[in-house]
Write a protein that binds this DNA or RNA. Structure first.
Lengths: 349, 349
DNA sequence: CGGTTCCCTGAAAGGGCTTTCCAACCCCCC
DNA sequence: GGGGGGTTGGAAAGCCCTTTCAGGGAACCG
């Protein structure tokens, strides 16, 4: 094998292999393998010699070869739906961190509502890698989604933000309760005319929040006022509020998230309604900016960090113990009372 | 292994290989390989027969094996720094989409300022995958970062948001000009007392914006008022503004991003200053919520979608044509004039 | 001082795919 | 009916690593 390797010049981007390390440190390549995999039976002296050589040659085991040989990839797939928003992003960061700490790499796919034709491309990519586990952040019910999950039926998979009450492995925040409680908070303040702006109804979370609102009203025998469907954006909150203002009288408004609440506040102010004196507004999520809205927004906090972390933890459980229980783990939300709510005006209707 | 497999029990989770497809469709495995790789010399009839069998057996070529054999992975690495913010997230989504369209998978790493000890873990992970290209979204200068880039010197790599004026392959938004122009806008309105809240100074972007502010003032012979360093968060904008209010008189405030502008507005209002009548405030980024701030925020738009897309485009150029020019591609920002600015009060000092 | 144990190391097989080189076809055309 | 071109199969090497399995040597025991 006449390989003329000039000392440092990498001829043709030649890759450093285990063999090179072995030769350089005067052992067989199996021994190098043992060192890499922390196999116990390697003499300390040999180990450190090899380790040193690895360092020196800047050798990295080839993941593809390794994965081929071991039939596991030490890789997890994260699939998000609509990652442009705050929640998924935060979770991603935490997932990445937790995964890395546990020694897993991450491959990332996002499927946007706008182009869900690429579901099969995502499935391909995940399946081809033969990942060890999958985490899906998608609060949607759709045929495409179901198909995706079906394709993955043989792989440990946990869903985040999926339908409440299912027993597939999943992590959700109890958005129903969060929404019910914050609506109740408005009722306790004396509000009787409470409108709602929901997120897109195809999202489980939006639905749960909607139900929370509805049930809180029903429990107090209040007639629900109109509830319209936004798309999570401030813009939609703004437009829907304009519509609500034109259509009915209300003293409080429950928004499906903080951004829509922001849009709502903007529309209200534009119509000369003060917040909270004339109209109380609440949001959902507790984005970091919510404290600095005008007025500071009363909202429901979802601990996305916690969700992300628990997601990975659970997934790894599932990978390591195939018989781990399948359940939905629920995280409690937290009411954040700030200044966008107060009792309704005395002269209210 | 008592795995309760559903009906079509896969014995031992046996993986479907090319061999299986070959047998099932009565051809040799080379032919299957040819079909998969779109080799021309396969009869249409055979091709469709094989394709059909692939479908039926739900076969996916094993990426590890393939990558091992071809010595390329059809995979790109995305490394972000501080992904909790708006910009990187948006870019991520676009990068993912463009990459997928070009047939690449993505592995994702994020290194948080808080835990940059894991740089080597990231390097390991990227190098082990032997990715075909790397895209780094990190507007920071740090030893850790440089080390990272050095490690990757043999791999096509493009940087996003790196130092202006370098000629390594990169995409940046011309933040300097954006900041200068928006400061000039304030000057044109008659402002002479203009404070600044910058992003963290170790971020290239923050620095560029700072320089823009400074140069605009200098060009008009205005003395720069204090400029303090925030961390991009609304909270920091809030606190710094409190400090500025205590320290000096100013009629305009240039914030390093929209979130800090929001915090600033909140602090100003709390001190009884109206925006924009008493104090004009501008931001940077144009997050979707900026329109719905109170008042709607005058800011500088960065087209993150464009950046993400161009990033991948350029990277693929680099991969396919190793001699492609190394340059920095600059995207122009856009002034978004809204209502948070107006001429200074007459009685100004 | 010979035999047994324990450590450590080497040999070899194999994981699923690509590629190259040839040989064997088949069908069509001249 | 023979030459070509288009298609397919065979065989084999190689990508880089893991993982038995067995062997060599040193240390230990009686």
């Amino acid at each position: 094998m006449p390989e003329a390797e000039p000392l440092n010049a990498k001829p043709d981007r030649k890759r450093v292999t285990m063999m090179d390390v072995a030769e350089a440190s005067g052992v067989s390549y199996q021994t190098v393998s043992r060192v890499i995999n922390n196999h116990p039976s390697v003499a300390p002296a040999t180990r450190s010699r090899v380790l040193h050589m690895i360092q020196k040659l800047n050798y990295r085991p080839n993941k593809a070869a390794r994965s081929l040989a071991t039939r596991q990839s030490q890789t997890l797939a994260v699939i998000t739906y609509n990652m442009r928003f705050f929640g998924p992003t935060q979770m991603m960061v935490n997932i990445e961190q937790s995964a890395r700490e546990a020694g897993y790499d991450l491959i990332f796919s996002n499927f946007d509502p706008l182009r869900d034709n690429d579901v099969s491309a995502i499935a391909d990519s995940v399946l081809q890698w033969s990942v060890d586990g999958i985490i899906i952040i998608a609060q949607v019910a759709s045929a495409a989604y179901d198909e995706l999950v079906t394709q993955f039926r043989d792989i440990p998979l946990i869903q985040i933000d999926n339908a409440p009450g299912t027993t597939t492995p999943s992590i959700i925040v109890d958005q129903y309760t969060g929404s019910r409680d914050i609506t109740q908070h408005l009722i306790d303040l004396g509000h009787q005319h409470i409108c709602e702006i929901t997120g897109p109804r195809y999202a489980f979370g939006a639905l749960a929040r909607h139900n929370g609102w509805q049930d809180a009203l029903a429990a107090s025998d209040l007639n629900p006022l109109p509830s319209y469907e936004g798309d999570w954006s401030a813009e939609s909150g703004y437009h829907i509020t304009q519509r609500l203002l034109a259509e009915c009288d209300f003293t409080a408004l429950v928004a499906g998230n903080d951004q829509m609440a922001l849009g709502a506040i903007s529309a209200l102010r534009q119509h000369g309604r003060r917040v909270p004196e004339d109209v109380s507004v609440v949001g959902f999520d507790d984005i970091p900016e919510a404290t600095y809205f005008d007025p500071p927004l009363t909202t429901v906090r979802q601990d996305f960090n916690e969700v992300g972390q628990q997601g990975i933890t659970y997934l790894i459980e599932l990978i390591q113990m195939p018989n781990a229980p399948h359940e939905q783990r629920v995280i409690a939300p937290q009411l954040m009372l700030r200044s966008s709510t107060c009792p309704p005006p005395d002269t209210s209707f």
